[in-house]
Design a protein around this nucleic acid. Sequence first.
DNA 1: ATGAAAGCGCTAACAG
DNA 2: CTGTTAGCGCTTTCAT
Lengths: 337, 337
Amino acid sequence: MAASIEDVARLAGVSIATVSRSLRGLPDVAQSTRDRVLAAARELDYVASPFAARLASGRSATVGVVVPFVNRWYFAEVLGSIEGVLHDANMDLLLYNLGDMAGRERFFRDLPVRKRVDAIIIATLVLTEAEMDALRSLKVPIGVIGVDHAGFHSTRIDDRAGAATAVGHLIELGHRRIGHVAGDRADPMRFTPPHHRRRGYIDRLAAAGIDYDPSLEVLGYFTTHGGRLATEELLARPDRPTALFAESDEMAYGALVALRRAGLRVPHDIAVVGFDDHASAALMDLSTIRQPVRDQAEELTTRVLAAAAGDSAEPTSHVLPTELIVRGSTDPAHTIY
Amino acid sequence: MAASIEDVARLAGVSIATVSRSLRGLPDVAQSTRDRVLAAARELDYVASPFAARLASGRSATVGVVVPFVNRWYFAEVLGSIEGVLHDANMDLLLYNLGDMAGRERFFRDLPVRKRVDAIIIATLVLTEAEMDALRSLKVPIGVIGVDHAGFHSTRIDDRAGAATAVGHLIELGHRRIGHVAGDRADPMRFTPPHHRRRGYIDRLAAAGIDYDPSLEVLGYFTTHGGRLATEELLARPDRPTALFAESDEMAYGALVALRRAGLRVPHDIAVVGFDDHASAALMDLSTIRQPVRDQAEELTTRVLAAAAGDSAEPTSHVLPTELIVRGSTDPAHTIY
DNA sequence: ATGAAAGCGCTAACAG
DNA sequence: CTGTTAGCGCTTTCAT
């Protein structure tokens, strides 16, 4: 049986209260006493039982992290970043992967985080009023990454401005017919990027006096495969575009495959710009909008942790900058294919 | 304040013991009593405090999941699968992302899972004796995915046989000079696939009476970028290979990029086969060895859960089958580029 | 600076 | 079938 606080107290010749204080670094313990306790604890290889501590203190030293999918680049990146901050702060991380709408409904109905976390971090979901109510009922600080919701801590990028920058880059290169490989705005998970990025696309066209042409817009569903199919569809239409804006790099990869198969040269026949600066974008020589994924996750986690620790500042919404990265897929002096 | 078991007992007019029994579905409770308790619990929106239950019962209903990285395809896939099984079983999932050697050392030194999990699942690490001792000291069932260690539950594939199949496929197509884009065998994380997959490559060459040529072997470090560089290096050598075996699909993608840039046709000039059947392999038209990642994770998790629940069967090692998937990158009737 | 003691909210014998 | 009671291993007043 593992050592308990009583064993340590006995060995150190003090009360369990003193052991508790010493080990947690609380004040009002003589240095000599503390040293004795630390030595005893080390000798017995003692660690406090987290459950006993949590029951007694009412704090769980745990945060719940909710992601729609763990196996997509963006969410995996976010999750890894959060994990780092949390464990550096000696917090446990309870993972919830929604997976699909059924999982999402189950989560908000059952609220499996109840009575077990000091804070919650949720990635990229636009929450319904009912979901927000459910979360608020937990009475713990809540952080949302990628979206902002009043009353919750949030960190995100400006998707709309980023998309406008991407499209502006194409316009400055002289393109007027710009195809749009879009994310699914009707996804039941209600992700926001497709809405904002599309707005940015339309904004920027308008600013350049280019008419918005719905026939240049096809859904790619945020997958590589979808990006390929969408591009094939665009190419099959009369008067094909001279450039493509894909709402995500992963869709852009699919677009590049479709273009290669169609025998079109990039960027000479068709230029392509993506969004995210995904891990493989540099390899694919894809121009894109870089977003600081890890920074967003770390910044948000840090603030949520402060809130959980009692910092009662009002929840705020932070926006981090994006950056246009020009690579071969739009550089006329270059050829990918 | 949230309702406690006493509130429920009072409302239902029974003792807290009866509430506990009713809610947990234990026997020896009159149906009418149970109904009353359930109604009271629902009315008060009661859920038991997990910490109190864990402290009293000694069971944590939690499993620790340890991965080297969350943001690599294989591990993300594994993590997602484990999460599904765990939450279906009403278990909490505590995530530990090692990240690098420093993180790995810290994990095994501090053992942050101590006193908080009923079982541990670890992905793809070859454990040192010291690490195994540390884990054993926890006295909980341990599952390892991708490797087998005596005394631990494990599920894996036969990497060696899979690699041999991949190389055999190339040999049957008539190839004799087969380049090898290899994983790093000296990685301090000590992953096993590079060792086994390389053995399979060498085995199969030997079986076909082909001399092993070290100059055909270059490290690609399991990254897309590394695969590209490795391939470029292979192409720069005299008497270049007519086919490539990449130890992972992600490295194979890099190889395809390098071949395209070099103006070589696939599979006519050089055929390529990968390993894993990564999510994008179909899109890239890459022939590969499919491994059932989710199945491995689910099978292992299920067994570990049984062990944690008291099934005292000896830990065993299970091997799941792989399958050759032939696509355009090796099909002579086909052209990728 | 230290100790005694009262919980925290459950589970698990044990009685009846 | 149900209730009583003794913990589980800590944290946290409150004394001293």
